[in-house]
Amino acid sequence: MPSIQPHHVINPLIKIENLCKSYSLEDANGRTIMNQVLFNINLTINQGEFVAIMGQSGSGKSTLMNILGCLDTPTSGSYWLSEKNAAALSGDELARIRNRSIGFVFQGFNLLKRMTALDNVAAPLLYAGVSRSNSRRQALEFLRRTGLENFALHQPNQLSGGQQQRVAISRALINQPALILADEPTGNLDSQTSREIMSLFAQLNRDQGITIVLVTHEDTIAAYAKRLIRLKDGHVIYDKNNDRSLRTQ
């Protein structure tokens, strides 16, 4: 099914089998009704891929993203991340995976308010048990790589959107995760900044081999990915190599 199968990678980073997700809701009469959002998703993503998941709102792409990020658990089916079945892990183990193996980049940046850029980037290291001074030193290095070392002591509300997103990317990268999950990362940015952020993702993917899964509804953003997955009403309806992306490489 996946069109790209780099031959040097043996085990897939992500393997999803028959995954379903439904939410229970209460209707006006107080009865519980089940609302199924994802239907029998099967998906394999290998290390080093750059995947864009597209779909209209309500297509289930955010739900899928949350499950991929171990923020939510599937109702049925299995989700293997680095050969661990995330559906069977405890809350603490999931927290550990989110900390070490996954970096999140959100549409709204989701930086911690009233904390400096430096402390924001350092936070995942603190949760990993690294000392404060060590984590700050490393955080500064990561800010330098995204060109923000001069803004290290600025708080998020003193930074532009693009700068905030680059702080968020630094934070996502600091524990050197295998996987970056970006949920509409350019949704709050102008087109020029969007291009810069997307170039940064492409560069991370190309130079460091970091697997990137991107959720977007914009074709121009999805164009940066090497593989395109389309969801509709909880089903995968399209999964192909992105020819345009290959051309830009």
């Binding site: 989701n110 911690l112 995942p124």
Partner: peptide
Amino acid sequence: IRMAIGAN
């Protein structure tokens, strides 16, 4: 946010 970046 804290949970997403690894707080248990």
